[in-house]
Design a protein around this nucleic acid. Structure first.
Lengths: 231, 231
DNA sequence: CGTGAAGTTGAGTCCGCTCAAACTGCGTGG
DNA sequence: CCACGCAGTTTGAGCGGACTCAACTTCACG
């Protein structure tokens, strides 16, 4: 424990990393075991408390973060206080793909989380011997862009019912097992701010979807789809 | 998509590139003159006719394109035919930052244009000696992401009037000289599909903005802002 | 249980949509 | 040179989906 500032961080160690749940999705997958140990010396894990911001709108950020556990909302504010959620991060997702003087959104933990931090200075060094790292960042950037465009289509062209269904289905598709039940890690207000709807509209829309049979059960943050095809 | 596919391409030559208007924004800026000549052997310019697609939604793309002249709309379609424009490209902008099996939008020329094509296989080779190339792609990807988020906020939280003003102002801010007049390279329908509005609403909103004095003149594709602060 | 936050439901309004008609600029041919 | 046609754009009238404001219910937690 050197300085107080860093006490939220823990030095990583190779055995911990070997057990990492998101190792294959991370840039670590580019490295062999010996290199992992090198990396472990400068890389750091950091727990994030629920509601706390990992990076803040307008502030400098010089590190790449990879979500090991938990989930985050990416928030942008208009001058008058209106709030738009531009995305969510889940296990395995990246934040801060490039160092920046002024990051354009705040990332707030929706639940207690754990992230892995890689200073970009370190990544630049590593990528001399491992060009795959930059490619991995580029590829990830591409999928982020893809998600953003999907979001743009949702906001620009879809009705309230379509927005809600698209959102719920995208969450369901994250499950490896095809389970018909999903558990939201975010509040109704967060979902509404993501979908460009008022929360009353979201609530009403969920009620309509349930009444119509598209959803079997809506109770708080647990939502069950109607598995049976029709009627 | 024809047998004449490649005849639209011209081999580049270093003297042409030396005069390039977007050279400083392009990856070419990473290279010295000798290397430019190397590059010129495999790189190609391509004119694009108005209305023609450079890459199409769902189709494979293995090249990076840089817009040398003209402008493009990036279009996504829903199954039922609804159309959302997810962005516009102008001189100096990049398309196809990563090779992909299925590109997620169509890029259509708004006017006769000229692009510069770099196969990613070539870029991978070049970037061994010039790591700056990958960094440039990453940085550009970041600004694309920034624009996408701005667009998400616009669609999710802004009113029709705010959307139109934001859009027009973003175009004005592109001008190096601070000119109060802008010339749109896209139709009303394109603007409406970008802003998530019906074209009638866009037309009415422009009328309101003019009546209110935010805009001094709206005649077809030429729009003049009200430079004087108030009255 | 009591308290507050989160979520649902209700009633009425309004912004942006729909359908429809008129206008404008521009190329084409008589 | 004007008539014509057409695509792009503007304007009009009425409607409806999402919003606003407000009351109520449910849930988490002490």
């Amino acid at each position: 424990m050197s300085e107080a500032h860093d006490c939220a961080f823990q030095r990583a160690n190779a055995s911990f990393c070997a057990l990492c749940k998101v190792r294959e999705q991370s840039i670590c997958a580019e490295l062999d075991l010996g290199e992992m140990e090198d990396l472990a010396k400068t890389m750091a894990h950091r727990p994030v408390k629920e509601g706390k911001a990992l990076i803040a709108e307008g502030e400098e950020n010089d590190s790449l973060y990879i979500v090991v556990d938990g989930s985050f909302r990416l928030v942008r504010h208009l001058v008058d206080g209106r709030r738009q959620i531009v995305g969510f991060l889940f296990r395995g997702d990246y934040l801060g793909m490039q160092p920046t003087e002024s990051s354009f959104h705040t990332a707030e933990a929706l639940e207690p989380g754990l992230v892995c931090r890689f200073p970009h200075s370190l990544l630049d060094e590593l990528s001399v011997r491992h060009p795959g790292i930059k490619n991995r960042l580029l590829a990830r950037g591409q999928t982020e862009m893809h998600k953003a465009e999907e979001h743009i289509v949702l906001l620009g062209k879809k009705t309230a019912e379509e927005r809600v269904m698209s959102f719920l289905e995208s969450l369901r598709d994250k499950n490896e097992a095809d389970d018909d039940t999903i558990f939201l890690s975010m509040s109704r207000q967060d979902v509404a701010d993501y979908l460009g709807l008022r929360l009353e509209t979201l609530s009403r829309t969920l009620a309509v979807l349930k009444k119509r049979g598209d959803l079997q059960e809506v109770s708080g943050r647990r939502i069950t789809f109607n598995g049976s095809a029709s009627d």
